[in-house]
Amino acid sequence: MKFNFIYYIFILISIAAHAQIDSQNKSRSIPAVESKKDSADTFKLLPSKPNQNNSFNGMTIPKSNSNVNEPKKEFSMFGETFGNPGELYEKQVNKNLESTKLSPQEVEQRNGSTTDQYFGDFKSNSKFVNVVYRDFGEVDGDLIQVRLNDDVIQSSVYLTGGFKGIKLNLQKGFNKIDFVALNQGESGPNTAEFQVVDDMGNLVSSNRWNLATGVKATIIIVKE
């Protein structure tokens, strides 16, 4: 009797397990429900009304200006007219041609003499002379060197608008004074005015020069 009871329980457990596995393998289909109206037709997109208040999120929107001048023609490298490249050098060429129309004296005045200048010889019984010089043109950095009988007395003198110079003791006979142009300043040429005054305050000689770089002006004082 006990054996029959156990047998029945075993059969019931087997049936329950088989039913559970069967229920997991079977799928349940859900029938599709046809919509009465497509959801895409539910809402229609309408254009928004223009903002009459000219504001957005509290900020004022500036009104468009219909009077703005727009370019009538788009920029293009094709079909454009460009100037003659030779015009870039026209001024320089004209300046060079202008020099050919000047007299030799005018050219020398503009560009400076390229030959040494001799301003004469003068007699004096003085023991010494004062030689002074200045830039009579625009003060532009002209430099000169002063020599006495080929000895350098002042190696480099910056010419200003006022006279300045040096005292030179005269020796018996010839006293050659050279003024050598070391440069032509910023505007050129080397322009200077000089004066030679004896020990009594008498003017022995005075003159001016326009020199190119390296050219010299010379004056001779003859002591009797």
Rank of each mutant, 00 (worst) to 15 (best):
Ser155Asp: 13
Lys172Arg: 08
Val68Ile: 10
Lys216Phe: 04
Tyr158His: 13
Asn65Ala: 01
Val131Asp: 05
Arg147His: 10
Asp121Ile: 00
Ser14Lys: 12
Gly86Ala: 12
Asp135Glu: 06
Val131Met: 09
Met1Arg: 12
Gln92Glu: 14
Asp199Asn: 02
Phe56Val: 10
Phe163Gly: 02
His18Leu: 14
Asn25Gly: 12
Asp151Ala: 11
Ile219Arg: 07
Phe75Cys: 05
Phe78Glu: 15
Tyr8Ile: 09
Lys164Ala: 15
Gln195Lys: 06
Lys95Arg: 13
Val93Asn: 04
Gln20Asp: 11
Ile144Arg: 06
Val129Lys: 01
Asn202Asp: 07
Ser39Asn: 15
Leu159Arg: 02
Ser66Lys: 14
Lys172Ala: 10
Asn51Glu: 08
Lys167Met: 07
Thr191Asp: 15
Asn67Trp: 06
Val180Ile: 11
Thr218His: 03
Ser48Gly: 11
Thr191Gln: 13
Met1Ser: 15
Ala181Asn: 00
Ser55Lys: 13
Leu182Arg: 10
Ser126Gly: 02
Phe78Cys: 09
Gln52Pro: 12
Ala181Ile: 03
Phe194Ser: 03
Ser206Lys: 04
Ser66Tyr: 12
Met59Gln: 14
Ser27Lys: 10
Ile21Phe: 15
Ala40Arg: 14
Phe163Leu: 02
Val222Pro: 00
Ser35Gly: 08
Phe5Met: 07
Asp198Val: 07
Lys44Cys: 09
Lys73Gln: 10
Val157Ala: 09
Gly137Ala: 08
Asn183Glu: 01
Met200Glu: 13
Gln171Asn: 13
Asp140Lys: 08
Gln105Lys: 08
Val129Cys: 02
Leu143Val: 01
Ile9Asn: 13
Ile219Asp: 03
Val215Leu: 00
Val196Pro: 04
Asp22Tyr: 15
Val146Gly: 03
Asp142Tyr: 07
Arg110Cys: 04
Gly137Thr: 02
Ala217Ser: 03
Phe5Ala: 11
Met77Lys: 11
Ile153Asn: 05
Asn4Leu: 14
Lys91Val: 05
Val33Asp: 13
Ala217Val: 05
Gly137Glu: 10
Ser205Glu: 07
Ile177Met: 02
Leu203Asp: 07
Leu102Gln: 03
Lys91Arg: 13
Gly112Ala: 01
Ser66Asn: 10
Val152Ser: 09
Gly201Leu: 04
Glu224Gln: 06
Ala17His: 10
Leu46Pro: 10
Ala217Asn: 00
Leu148Asp: 07
Val180Tyr: 00
Glu138Ser: 12
Lys49Trp: 03
Glu224Gly: 02
Gln109Tyr: 11
Gln195Ser: 09
Ser187Ala: 04
Asn169Tyr: 12
Ser187Thr: 05
Asn53Val: 15
Gln52Phe: 14
Glu80Arg: 14
Ser27Asn: 11
Phe56Tyr: 15
Leu182Cys: 09
Gly188Leu: 04
Leu148Gln: 09
Pro62Asn: 12
Leu168His: 03
Ser29Lys: 13
Ser206Gly: 06
Val152Phe: 05
Leu46Ala: 11
Asn94Gln: 00
Gly58Trp: 09
Ser76Pro: 08
Leu203Ala: 09
Asp135Tyr: 07
Asn57Ser: 11
Asp140Cys: 01
Met200Tyr: 09
Phe136Asp: 05
Ser206Cys: 03
Gly161Cys: 01
